[in-house]
Design a binder for these strands. Structure first.
Lengths: 238, 238
DNA sequence: CACGATAGGTGTACGCCGTACACCTGTCAA
DNA sequence: TTGACAGGTGTACGGCGTACACCTATCGTG
């Protein structure tokens, strides 16, 4: 209809177009719906055409990760290490909220992609510039773990779940059934305990952003204390 | 040969036998090799036979998680909250080292299994008994996140990788290639900076146990400080 | 202009996966 | 003796990733 054979061609495939379409598909339909066949169909092309641009599905996932990691804001220049690192981690977290599949995808992948290595490298650079010894910076990176990529790493993460299959938002915070509350009284107690929120369910209805920043600041403050003390591997604290 | 038709029957299937065989298979061959077909073959049975005991593969995974969570040591009775919680988390970590597939499996699952809820509930109980307000205990659980299940949550976790495909141990700490070191100088610097170890690769060759306890103690100490200060959601620290 | 190389899209096919569904068989209560 | 039923079997379907042979349009070179 809109295109004629011979002269008017559809816009050609490219690795970039494929990666972007894959991200859109995973965002919209969930990572479970991301198959080479579905992706090819979205691109109006036969599945095997993709393999001329990406080696296989694993490499496709790596490419998708690089795309979304590229969306993370760069480090604020000329800022203290703590606000700079903090802001960037929160930016990473926003990226993960846009791409709920990304957290699990990154964690499942075997090795670091260049984009992730670059991200981590600049993060270490900020620590070093902020006065951390190489020794302590090493342990800081381990201690922050995936949180440095904005992972909430919570026990039951609704957005993580959304990443598996489909849309992200609606899901109202269903109250936990009374027989569950009876079997797990301590969970029931803390479920309604958070005063920053009008009392609802553990892992749901909580103010995720608050919880993330609570843990993040706890770590950053503790690490800052170690830095000020001139901590080295030789010491153990407490 | 060893069994005759008619009188001598093989030991019958049961949900428990299936779950245990599945754990053994995932431990030995990696979670990727855990298919209903492979599992059935290990049990000397036809694939569909499994479905008389487990509803589907997702329920199988949930059951496997309950099995391994059941291996975590119970809380030390009559101990201070911090050593009790610390010891139990380290026990959970040992369980994860025995079952490298478990971390990703638990994180990928949608909802908590009863075994995990019971584990978490007793953990909250220890915090409450140790003097944490319900409010603070709530945030503690969020802040600890999956670390409370022993997750190392490191950026690139060799054992996590092992959980995907096959055996766990050998993998020597290969030195990082010089062109990588050149592109990511800060990573290269901290890779060799940890004095507790004879200088090797970031994420590999590090003393995982040390890093885990470093982060764990950082969090526990920070949380203890908040508890002593009578922290509530109304405050923010610093 | 002719032409061969080459990049890139196509079609078919294979072996794996989870699992629906109909079937068979041995056991045991009535 | 019988018939219900728990539990193992066989077949089949649709989906997956992807190997491999093929076709075709483009373009640099003679």
């Amino acid at each position: 209809m809109a295109e004629q054979a011979g002269t008017l061609r559809r816009t050609p495939l490219s690795r970039d177009r494929i990666l972007r379409a894959a991200v859109v598909l995973a965002d919209g339909a969930g990572i479970e719906s991301l198959s080479m066949r579905n992706l090819a169909q979205d691109l109006g092309v036969v599945p095997m055409a993709l393999y001329k641009h990406v080696a296989n599905k694993d490499e496709l996932l790596d490419g998708m990760i690089d795309v979304v990691v590229g969306e993370i804001d760069p480090l604020l220049p000329d800022a203290d290490w703590k606000p700079a690192v903090r802001a960037r981690i929160l930016s990473a977290r926003q990226m993960l909220r846009r791409h709920p599949w990304a957290a699990l995808a990154i964690e499942s992948r075997n090795m670091a992609t260049p984009a992730i290595l670059g991200y981590l490298d600049s993060m270490v650079g900020a620590l070093r510039a902020g006065g951390f010894s190489a020794d302590l910076a090493h342990h800081v990176m381990h201690a922050m773990g995936s949180r440095i990529l904005g992972f909430s790493q919570e026990l039951f993460d609704a957005s993580r779940r959304a990443g598996r299959s489909g849309v992200t938002e609606p899901e109202p915070p269903a109250p936990l059934p009374p027989e569950v509350a009876a079997r797990f009284p301590h969970l029931a107690e803390i479920a309604t305990a958070a005063s920053h929120d009008d009392g609802s369910v553990v892992g749901q209805g909580c103010d995720d952003q608050f919880e993330f920043e609570f843990a993040l600041d706890l770590l950053l403050d503790g690490l800052d204390r170690l830095r000020q003390q001139g901590w080295t591997s030789a010491h153990r604290f407490h």
